[in-house]
Structure formats: C-alpha cells, structure tokens
Design a protein around this nucleic acid. Structure first.
Lengths: 228, 228
DNA sequence: ATTAATATTTAGATAGGACTAAAACTGAAA
DNA sequence: TTTCAGTTTTAGTCCTATCTAAATATTAAT
C-alpha cells in the first residue's frame, strides 16, 4: 500500500538526492523526467534509477508511470525545496563565515544538507541573517518552500551601456568559476557593458567601475546579471 | 589479507561510531573491551558487534581476538580522536554561534562529526578561535590527536571550604544536564563547598558567590571540578 | 573436573543502495 | 505494420549494517 504521508515523509540521504535531481530536471518544461536523464544527473545506471523511482513513487513524492518518466508531486516539491534550502544556507555559511571560495563549497554543502535538525537550520538561518540568495546568486527557499525569484538576464543579451550586478552563473563547474575568477569577475561584481564586438559577439565589460575585461559570447552567456 | 593502511584508513559512518565507542570504553583500564560492553554502548546486539569487530580488526584499527575482547591500536586511537575532535568543535559552534543550550547539542554534533572535509574542520577551528574545551568541559584534541588534559576532581570528593569551577559532567545525558540547570548549576560555574552532611553525604554548594544549593552525593559525583 | 551460567560467535534473514546482463517496452523509420 | 534502435525494467548479485536464533566458547561454581 502507498505510504500514508499523514505527517512528514522521511527520506533517506539517497532518496533526498534523487528527489533533488528530479526537481532540478523538472524546472523548465512540463514534460516528465526520463529515467536516463536522472541516471545522467545522478551519475548512476538507469537500472538503479528504476528501482529508486519505484520507491519514491510508493512514498508519493513523485508520480511514476513505468516507461513514461516521472512528475514530481506537490509533497515531493516541498521536500526537494527543503533540501535545496539547507544546501544553500550551508553554502552561505561556508563562504561568509568560514571564508571558503564560492567554487569550493558545493561538495561540502552536498554533505551538510542531509543533517536532520529543523532547529539547526532555523538557527543557522537566523545566524546568517535570513539570506535570500546563496553565493552563486541562487535563491534560498524559505521554510515553506517559497522562493524570491530575481529577474535575471544573460550577460550576452545585454546592450551596450547597460549596467547590473553579476548574481549567478548557469554552468557552476569549478573550471568555469575559476576562469571567471582569473578574468577578474565574480558573483556580486557590478558591471557595465562597454562594447559588443560585431565580429564574434564578444563583450567588453567594466567591472566595479575600474577594471575592464573582454570575454567571449559563450562565457558571457553563462553569466547571469541582475539589471539595474 | 589485512588492509594495507599505507595512507589514511577510510571508515564508514558506522565504523567511526563503533571506533569512538571502543575508544571511550578503553579510557581508564588497560583491560580489553568486551563485545557486550560495545553492544550496550552502541545500543545494538552483540551479534552485530561481533561482525563489526571483525571488520575493524581487518582494517587494523583494533586488535581483535575472538572471545577475548578488543584493544584499540595506535592508528585506531588517532582516527577516534579525529572524530572526537570534530564532534567537540561542532558542539562549540552550536553553543557559541547558534545559541544552542549545552544539553541540546549532542545529537546534532553526532551527525555533523561525520562530514568528510579536512578543510572544513580546519576553517571551523580557526573560526572558533582554536578552542581547547567543548561546552561540557571536555578537551578538544588537536589535529594530531593531542589533548590538553585538565586535572579534575569529582565534586563529592572535595572538602568543605574548597573552591573551583565546574568544568564537566560524567553523565552528560540530557536528563542530567537539565537537572543541573534546574538546580542552578552549569558548566563554568564557580563553586565553593559550604558543607558536607554526615548523614547521607549530600553537599551544600555556593554558586558564583551568591546562590546556595543542596545536592545529593550521587549528583555531586557526576560533576567534575577544576580546583582553584 | 564437570556442570551451569554467561558471553560470544556463526548462520541465515532483511533492507537499502548499487551494479551487470538480459528481457521487455516504445516510438519512429521503412 | 513490421522491424529495429534506443530506453526502461526485471532478475540476479554484491556490499553494508542490522536482526534473531542457534551453536559454541569461556568462566565461575559446585
């Protein structure tokens, strides 16, 4: 029989990770998420995913129809957002309090997010002064799962003379983050588009009103800006 | 074949917990630790312990002779002390930064201590300003496993008019800690023995030079004092 | 030195999470 | 509408960590 999710469902660490992956894959696109997609995201084999989907389906955090992919349920979305909330709060802690660089925090936060203690998260949130965004500029859901969306635009889509603040990157791989750093850009930097080169679409950017740098269209496409 | 512990042994969470339990049971007394003792400490069944002892023996963190209990090896002691170090650092964090009460921190620290990231612990240690003792007064091993021992005496063994500071409790169960709190005593309190009752060995204690309270011999036996 | 009581280990199960190999399903091309 | 490539599921195996029940070893008492 299906799990009676009267109160709150308890998920194992592995289940939480799968659910988070499914949630992320669900973002943008009403289509169901495929077994193969989940396997790729989780770096496991499709066979393992099938097993897990059955389990998550029984717990009613996803809707599972064999061969047709899955949809996350409201209950599942709520749980996924809680995990994301914890992950991002810990990232803020690591960067702001322990002086981690923002390309070093992901793996550790991946572990910390599974600590089970509502009180801990409540206190951590207060200690960090209720941050609304993590160091990568991603929004932190509140305890009810609500997120403050921030209107963002890819840097390569901005026009000459427009200004804003770098708030996130699409590809947050360590390699890309390091590249950004090396160029002299970073999350939080205030920027202005000085020029867009016709030839290859590359951009000339002014950072913090003092440093200018050039970046390719592709790099700029990975950078998200809050316009101002 | 035995695990070649060339570099550093990696233990699972369960193994770390068993090793920590064995380390604590080893303290005081050269005698080997029995399977039953470990089972009681870990709240598992002796059969489960036998299995785990075999595994820990293969990893050479304990010396295991069937039917004769175990002794922790130097390598095992080092690993246990690392776990204890992490546990106690997290306890300091929870109390000093997140305003947890000192009887609320154990369970959460029990989870946090298994996060794998040497950098995290290094940074946390620095952030907390390299504390030498946790909120219960227990010493925090340094990264090499060295501990600053603090000479402590049980409160019931002190004489009338002697003074000191409460630095630890033997039984740190939530129940006992709450009882202590309710009486008006706490870790860090400066105390003076005002009287020892012949009849039942109970004590009259002056706390922080203003509040007097009575406690049974048993309660006093659970309280450790740094004499001054 | 036996026997009885206690402690410990082995054997066999269960449950979570992962894998490989094989079977079954879907959907699109011929 | 049949075939087939790609996707997904099932079946069977492995590993960790736990349990119960049964077997065996140790220790203490007679």
């Amino acid at each position: 029989m299906p799990q009676s999710n009267k109160k709150s469902m308890t998920l194992t660490t592995a289940e939480e990770n799968y659910l988070k992956a499914i949630y992320h894959l669900s973002e943008g696109g009403k289509k169901g998420v495929s077994t193969n997609d989940v396997a790729a995201e989780m770096k496991t084999k499709p066979a393992s995913v099938s097993d897990m989907l059955r389990k998550l389906g029984e717990k009613e955090v996803i809707e599972y129809r064999k061969y047709y992919g899955v949809h996350i349920t409201d209950e599942g979305k709520k749980l996924a957002l809680q995990t994301i909330r914890k992950h991002r709060l810990w990232e803020v802690f690591l960067v702001e309090k322990l002086n981690f660089a923002w390309d070093e925090v992901h793996e550790v936060a991946e572990e910390l997010e599974h600590i089970q203690s509502p009180l801990l998260i409540q206190r951590l949130d207060a200690y960090l002064n209720y941050p609304k965004f993590d160091p990568h500029g991603d929004p932190i859901p509140d305890e009810f799962g609500d997120v403050k969306a921030r209107p963002r635009v890819a840097l390569n889509e901005m026009e000459v003379d427009q200004t804003g603040q770098i708030v996130a990157v699409k590809d947050s791989s360590a390699a890309f983050l390091r590249h950004l750093d090396k160029m002299g850009a970073y999350i939080g930097a205030r920027i202005k588009v000085l020029d867009k080169v016709e030839f290859d679409g590359s951009l000339e950017i002014l950072v913090d009103q003092k440093k200018t740098l050039f970046m390719s269209k592709d790099v700029a496409g990975n950078i998200l800006v809050l316009q101002s």
